[in-house]
Amino acid sequence: MTPDTKIETKNIKKQNIVSSTDAGTLSNDNRKNVFSSKNFNLWYGDNHALQDINLDFKENDISAIIGPSGCGKSTFVKSLNRMVELVPIVRTEGQIIYKDRDIFEKSFTKEELRTKVGMVFQKPNPFPKSIYDNVAYGPRVHGIKKKKILDEVVESSLRDAAIWDELKDRLHENAYGLSGGQQQRVCIARALAIEPDVILMDEPTSALDPISTIKVEDLMKELKKNYSIIVVTHNMQQAARVSDTTAFFYEGYVVEHDDTNVIFENPNDKRTEDYVSGRFG
């Protein structure tokens, strides 16, 4: 790790930005970035919730974002598919580049972005429809109507979400009859069904029991072969278990972004060390 990624204080960080040093860039890695944010700022009304965020996320990584409540980690991940703009008072500045395109470009519609960048939410949120209709919803919305294709998509998505064997005889039951853990994996299957490049996960296991959590984590490790995953988590052990890189957010800033083992074993910043060792947050 090069020392220039180290951020001691807000002041030093701001200087870094002036000298256009990418705070979140990991060197010695020549894989492509799926996402990189450049001087990204976000306000909720007058509340400056994200300040000069510079982060790169690599393809086929599981990138974890950790930090105490209210640090802006969910806000940031929702900025990546522009869901954050559902809140009317949100204002943004700066760039977020998704594979060489600025997501805020006029020609890049939110619909197209969200087709490529899927999302799994904090609480399982299946539609009040059958399991089949839940998974087939995305493809149908995008105009795929042939039953044969839909059947195949539903099966392969549920297989990828490691829940096909449990549910293959119950496809036409209402998804609300499933347990929380099953619902969340159906929601993951639903996100996979439109074949996105990136899957954003906003605390995907916070409403689940430990066994379901392990299942979802195993699933994430399996999915990273084909997808890039950016996961917000409250649970530091989870970040340590599943992720390749970890970004630590604090009060709207990125304090540190590095390989997960560096963040957890040898962090550069005192605050990161305090947070990952459980001294605050």
């Binding site: 619909e111 197209e112 969200r114 087709t115 919803y137 995305g138 919305v141 995008h142 996100a191």
Partner: peptide, 23 residues
């Protein structure tokens, strides 16, 4: 109708009208 299911639909690239009419 809970906003979480609207978000699920919009988050998959569905348009507002698709979300309104289908969910």
């Amino acid at each position: 109708v809970p906003s979480s299911v609207r978000e699920a639909s919009i988050g998959m690239g569905a348009t507002k009208w698709q979300t309104v009419s289908r969910i």
